[in-house]
Amino acid sequence: MIGTGQVVKVGIADMNTVKAPDTIRTSGLGSCVGVVLYDERSQTAGLVHVMLPDSSLGRTETINIAKFADTGIPAMIEQLKLEGVQPFRLRAKIAGGAQMFQFTSGKDTMRIGPRNVEAVKEYLKKYSIPIISEDTGGSSGRTIEFNPSTNLLNIRTVNQGVRDI
């Protein structure tokens, strides 16, 4: 049945999991990257809203694991294991990592979007999770919603409309 599922929302630097018929969504991705890990067989998916590439950039005693690519991705794999998903079945779809503002200054912070994308890819590779599709880079904000029933990631932008990847 269509339209019976709930939408699980994921905030910035946050993560959660979902099972069909529910869908999972995060809004207003700019330089952040939305990483969806999903298992077709159990129709289970997890979404991490990654804000920074590496937790070594953090300067706090306690870290929010969902904030960083290097900690968020393994934490999501663990969480999906608890939901009964076998890690080797996991596939990934990723979106985000835009450069919202164009500057002449070459400061590293300005390139945070591309750096997040690079880090996410590096860690997905490390855990041998293939990326099935991606919509990254550019200069547009994105709202993304993953549907574990169809394995489609819906991407909405302000100026470039809506598409499924």
Partner: peptide
Amino acid sequence: SVDMVGAIVSF
């Protein structure tokens, strides 16, 4: 930038 607040402010 004319875009979603989340995308703009998170920067």
